[in-house]
């Protein structure tokens, strides 16, 4: 492997950008394909599939065997609201290997006693994101769970602007209609706000906070593994 390819691969990872190292295992020749360059690559359809699955592996193309080293940034879950559902979410997200951060400016809610061992930011979302919490990006999921537009709205706006692969918001259909009107007022198009999943979570009849947490995580996994499947 040429030193510059390794450096570029490490740089892409440090910047949380996806990339695939393509190695012809018979010849030993290699190239690094970044997300931007993917469309122009001769193996584009195979590479796109590999990126979606996030898994490295061998592929056959035009009589040659290539190994794809797939590098996808680890997924982060940002939860707005240190509420009961969030408490149930913490251990479930850990089981799924999701890095989770809870943001809530209400210090009575965002307390280490209520969230032991959890990454917590007792700040307004627009202040926390890009500050104490790394900025959102396409490999982040955001779940807005406070029911309070003052707290949820700025976070949802940040998530839409950052292109988070999952944006969900708690609230009834009526609450969501009012939310959509506010976002339209703030300049977001219908296509943009249609990306918000509300009412949040897969429709499994969730009744308790833990069940709602499960339905939200199920929806996040679906958005990650089967993009384009949005209900």
């Amino acid at each position: 492997m040429r030193g510059e390819i390794l450096r570029a691969l490490n740089a892409e990872r440090a910047a949380r950008r996806p990339a695939i190292l393509v190695t012809d295992i018979a010849e030993g020749t290699q190239r690094l394909v970044t997300a931007e360059a993917l469309a122009g690559d001769p193996l584009a359809p195979l590479l796109r599939k590999a990126l979606a699955s996030g898994r490295s592996g061998l592929v056959e193309a035009e009589g040659r065997t290539h190994f794809l080293t797939v590098q996808v940034p680890p997924v982060r879950l940002v939860v707005i609201g240190a509420v009961h559902i969030s408490q149930a979410l913490v251990p479930m997200a850990a089981a799924l290997d999701l890095a989770l951060t809870v943001i809530d400016p209400r210090t009575a809610f965002a307390s280490p006693e209520r969230f032991p061992g959890t990454e917590l930011a007792a700040e307004w979302p627009d202040r926390a994101l890009g500050g104490r919490v790394p900025p959102l990006d396409p490999y982040c999921a955001l779940a807005a769970l406070t029911h309070d537009p003052k707290i949820d709205d700025p976070a949802l706006q940040a998530a839409l602007r950052a292109g988070c692969f999952y944006v969900g918001a708690l609230g009834s259909r009526k609450t969501h209609a009012a939310r959509l009107a506010r976002l339209a007022e703030a300049g977001f198009s219908e296509a943009e706000t249609a990306r918000i999943r509300a009412p949040i979570g897969l429709d499994i009849g969730a009744a308790t906070p833990a069940e709602i947490a499960l339905s939200v995580l199920g929806e996040i996994v679906q958005a990650l593994r089967r993009p384009g499947d949005q209900a």
Binding site: L6, N10, I25, T69
Partner: peptide, 30 residues
């Protein structure tokens, strides 16, 4: 797995930069 692989490729780069001869082994099939 992701985080440990991060360290390994970063180490490969750092070792090489320090002038050491370096090889990388990758599991390609199981």
């Amino acid at each position: 797995m992701l985080s440990s692989d991060t360290d390994i490729l970063a180490a490969a780069e750092a070792w090489r930069r320090a002038g050491r001869g370096v090889a990388l082994a990758t599991v390609i099939e199981t």
